[in-house]
Design a protein around this nucleic acid. Sequence first.
RNA 1: CGGGGCGUAGCGCAGUCUGGUAGCGCACACGGUUCGGGACCGUGGAGUCGGAGGUUCAAAUCCUCUCGCCCCGACCA
Length: 482
Amino acid sequence: MAEQAPDKITPRAEDYSRWYLDVIRQAGLAEPAEVVKGCMVIKPHGYAIWEKIQRALDDRFKETGHQNAYFPLLIPESFIKREAEHVEGFSPELAVVTIAGGQKLEEPYVIRPTSETIIGHFFGRWIQSWRDLPMLINQWANVMRWELRTRMFLRTGEFLWQEGHTAHATHAEAVEEVKRMLDIYAEFAEGHMAMPVVRGVKTDSEKFAGALQSFCIEAMMQDNKALQAGTSHDLGQNFGKAFDVKFQNKAGLTEYVWQTSWGVSTRLIGALIMTHSDDNGLVLPPKLAPVSVAIVPIFGKGGDEAAVREAGAAIEKELKAQGLSVVFDVRDHKPGFKYFEWEQKGVPLRLEIGPKDLEKNQVAAKDRLGTAKEFWPRANLGAHVKEHLDRFQTQLFDRAKERRAANTVKIDSWSDFKDVFAGDNSKFVLAHWDGSRETEAKIKEETKVTIRCIPFDSPDEPGKCVHSGKPSPRRVLFSKSY
RNA sequence: CGGGGCGUAGCGCAGUCUGGUAGCGCACACGGUUCGGGACCGUGGAGUCGGAGGUUCAAAUCCUCUCGCCCCGACCA
């Protein structure tokens, strides 16, 4: 293990995993719970990011007609077993409650790993007629999946998420919903997180346990590995049949409903870290930064401290009037200390106000990507800052998109394929696949590479499978993944 | 769950081999001087050495068990 100075961040090039953990620690996002296996404590700065994510997504869910509700944490074990693929997919990760109130339970409860089953049960009670459809429900909740190997934010025993659950009269309408919500996720990822994503459909072996098909957004992390950032499932009538969710159509005939589910989790915070942050710590897009501007006062000797305080407070007020979240950092520390701290926390923009600035009627400014300080006139500062942050948001997105483009390649031979993924290397590889589960499994076994998705924008292009040489109608997206 | 590494003050670590009254740096508190990229001096507080059991006159150190973290592997809707 490398020697590490206290409170410093391991450079990415030296040890990417360690860097990731260092960033989380130094930014105060979270820490391992230690006393609870595989779980973490989300600290205020990390939770504040989650709240921003929640707010933005929740607004979009409401705009598209969904309502929030809440279902029990505990699910009768028999519910999970009712859908064959579902139980097979989830049973290895279940935590089960067998004793409660000092009594052994007649039927154990599982702690929800996801809520399709219990919501299916209630949908069955709530839905009778086509007039009850579509049923558009979302739940913000915690779930538990007993994972063998955990990583903060990316995979923990317990995590926070939202799960949308909807029921529709027709398959076409359900599919439309699945796509609509995937688009919302994609727009959120790109517009708010400044993280470009590939939209696509999962292969059969990668889809949700119990779904007809799963759509996803896949993002590229800085080590060129893929991260599934959101999924949206077409559940068909599988859960409708398992939980007897039926309705009478307009013709008076009884049919099973067509259901969907879709979710994103606190994993998005991990995605945010691994998309933008650098060796100096967290980098956050302004739209999700709990603090978007930090104002650092300089109280030099010979300077008028009261005047600096007054000017800083005035700037704080002006920026807040622009709807920005601002901190005027008057703590008793040296300015340099504050610079480092706000950088590690990912604050997009830092302003400095000192005696020299008062004289010149200006502020010093440095954004989280910038290398040199700039000096901005004090007049119209609010509007200028806002404009700068908008540009910063765009810059982050462009930068991430360029990085992805530079690391996305088309590959047509198996030896090239293996070269790209040699060692711990990864890229986004667009290559032909013969469509068989067997070939997919062999590729994974030989290289640890999986098919992340069949991108929606993958054009028809007949070719030969990169592994088997059999015919393929189009390229699919391969990558190592988290 | 398999292989490896590691748990000693808030953080990072030394001390463990060879048992003998628990240390260092940073952080923290107070006072003063400071303040445009991690301030300095002085004083001070803080640890049941991850936990349980055992060996011993004596255990951070030796033995057994156990919990957790990190890395690799397996697994991952």
